[in-house]
Computed example of a mutant assay.
Amino acid sequence: MLLRAAAAGAVASAYGMSPAQAHGRRRTVFVAGDSTAATYATADVPRAGWGQALPAFLRPEVAVQNGALSGASSKSFADLGRLDLILDAIKPGDTLLVSFGHNDEKVEDPARYTEPWTTFQDYLRLYLDGARANRAHPVLVTPVERRRFRADGTPYLSHGEYPDSMRALAEATGTPLIDLTALSFALWSTLGPEATKDYFLWLDPGEQPNYPAGVADNTHFQAHGAIEVARLVADAAGCDIPGVDPRALHNPSIPDSVLTWPATRPAES
Rank of each mutant, 00 (worst) to 15 (best):
A7G: 12
G9P: 02
A12Y: 09
Y15S: 15
S18V: 04
S18N: 00
P19W: 08
Q21D: 13
A22T: 11
A22H: 07
H23W: 14
R27E: 12
A32Y: 08
A32E: 08
S35I: 01
T36K: 06
A37F: 10
A41Y: 00
T42P: 02
P46E: 01
G51A: 08
Q52G: 05
Q52P: 01
L54Q: 09
A56H: 08
A56R: 07
A56C: 15
F57G: 04
L58H: 08
R59I: 11
P60V: 06
V64K: 09
V64N: 09
S70I: 07
S74P: 07
S76M: 05
A78I: 12
D79Q: 13
L80S: 13
L83M: 11
L85Q: 14
D88K: 14
K91F: 11
P92N: 08
P92D: 03
T95H: 02
L97T: 05
S99R: 12
F100W: 02
H102M: 12
N103V: 01
D104M: 03
E105L: 13
K106T: 08
V107I: 13
E108S: 15
P110A: 00
R112W: 06
E115R: 12
T118G: 10
Q121C: 15
D129F: 11
G130F: 07
A133P: 07
A133I: 09
P138E: 12
P138K: 09
V141C: 07
R147A: 03
F149E: 06
F149A: 01
A151Q: 12
T154V: 10
Y156I: 04
Y156V: 09
L157E: 13
L157G: 11
H159M: 14
E161V: 01
E161D: 15
Y162A: 06
P163R: 09
S165K: 01
R167V: 12
A168C: 08
A170R: 02
G174L: 05
P176G: 08
L177K: 07
A182V: 13
L183T: 01
L183N: 02
S184K: 02
F185H: 13
A186W: 02
L187S: 11
L187E: 13
W188T: 11
S189D: 15
T190I: 08
L191E: 04
G192H: 02
A195S: 03
A195I: 03
T196E: 06
T196P: 07
D198N: 12
P205C: 05
G206S: 07
P209D: 00
P212Q: 03
P212V: 04
G214C: 02
V215S: 07
V215Y: 02
D217S: 05
Q222M: 12
Q222H: 13
A223Q: 03
H224I: 09
I227Q: 07
E228Y: 10
A230T: 04
R231H: 11
A234V: 06
D235I: 01
D235C: 14
G238S: 05
D240N: 15
D240A: 14
P246D: 10
H250P: 08
P252K: 00
S253K: 14
I254Y: 03
W261V: 01
A263N: 10
T264R: 14
R265I: 14
